[in-house]
Design a protein around this nucleic acid. Structure first.
Lengths: 198, 198
DNA sequence: TAATAAATAGATAGATCGCTCTAGTCATGC
DNA sequence: GCATGACTAGAGCGATCTATCTATTTATTA
């Protein structure tokens, strides 16, 4: 029961933060939608809203990182993984009526200049994603340098496509970004095979 | 004097919104930093904060669109333009201590699910950028379809790189995105020449 | 079962929010 | 000179913000 309340608070906060941002979401709204007692928020998060924000960033960042891992399985085809990952992202955005895109991008932009602990949490999450994707691509035989560039390219393209997609209420940006990045990965893999043959 | 006050309000709001977001910036802070009388805000913007927000989005969007146009001059080299544009973006971000990236992305993510007029303003701005870039690329001889895809790719990559760059306090994402998109444009131009020769 | 800790419950403080209101200043045209 | 409208100036309203506080209930362990 206790842990459930805490979990509900983090869950609802994550959804509200990614849709309305950190500053745009009040703690009253959080506890109300989480069906949690107001006092419990400050019991579980004595550091207040900022501590909750930091924790939500790390938690949703980890969830999304797992999703990334689920697509880029070791030994799998990175080209198909990229295509499928972007397709899944587009589907999620469409099905949520353009509400649920990146779980932390809104907060990241809001707090990067105003809250160092929360900015650091976002940085840790992004670094984790980039490092994770890099390792998977290295596992596919690409050089570390090329893998890191591809990983950055992939995540940046997705993040930017999310921004455009939400504002335009269209999945075209995600589809275009997906096609472009997929082609990039395909080319990188082709060049690797070419190099191996020679 | 009158028009100057209005201008100061829009200017300061633009800077504050892009750094702290819309919800994270109070009207009191705006008028204080703009050295404007509080009453003037509601004199010039009877629609209140939301009207100001919408106007700021359109205004800064137009400014940034002009910047894009300044790099992608008709008849110029689109490859060099892309490279220079990303390099300039990286320099701006670095020089502002990772504060000034995209003028509207923060607000776009915040309001896309909460304020339809402001979301529409963001959509209009993004569409304007994409259409502008598309026309310039069409002017370079690329097909409309290919041009639009490249334009989306360019803007999405930049937007995403901005998100990562601010959180990571590093220009690496922008540099990587710049190199990737530049290579894409170069390849598109090369394929066009190949097609022309045959 | 008694004792202790954990969590719930919500009233309330104090600050800040967006905004309205009235009063005053200033420039311009009659 | 004086009327008119544009703008300045800021006090203050009700609402809402985050956070603290005490009291009570629930769970855990001795």
């Amino acid at each position: 029961m206790a842990a459930q309340t805490r979990e509900r608070i983090v869950n609802r906060s994550a959804e509200l933060f990614r849709r309305q941002g950190f500053a745009g979401t009040g703690v009253k709204q959080i506890v109300a939608e989480a069906s949690a007692p107001f006092g419990s928020l400050y019991h579980f998060f004595p550091g207040g809203k900022e501590q909750l924000g930091e924790e939500v960033i790390r938690w949703s960042g980890a969830i999304y990182g797992q999703l990334l891992d689920a697509f880029f399985t070791p030994g799998g085809d990175p080209v198909a993984a990229t295509r499928n990952f972007f397709a899944a992202a587009a589907a999620t955005v469409r099905e949520s009526d353009y509400a649920d895109a990146c779980p932390i991008a809104t907060v990241a932009l809001e707090v990067s200049s105003t809250s160092e602990p929360m900015r650091q949490a976002c940085a840790d999450v992004f670094n984790g994603w980039v490092d994770g994707a890099t390792e998977r691509l290295v596992g596919c035989g690409l050089s570390r340098k090329r893998s890191r560039a591809l990983a950055f390219s992939m995540i940046a393209s997705l993040e930017g496509a999310f921004v455009l997609s939400r504002a335009l209420r269209s999945t075209e940006p995600i589809e275009v970004a997906g096609a472009t990045v997929t082609a990039e990965v395909r080319e990188a893999m082709a060049k690797r095979r070419q190099r191996q043959r020679s």
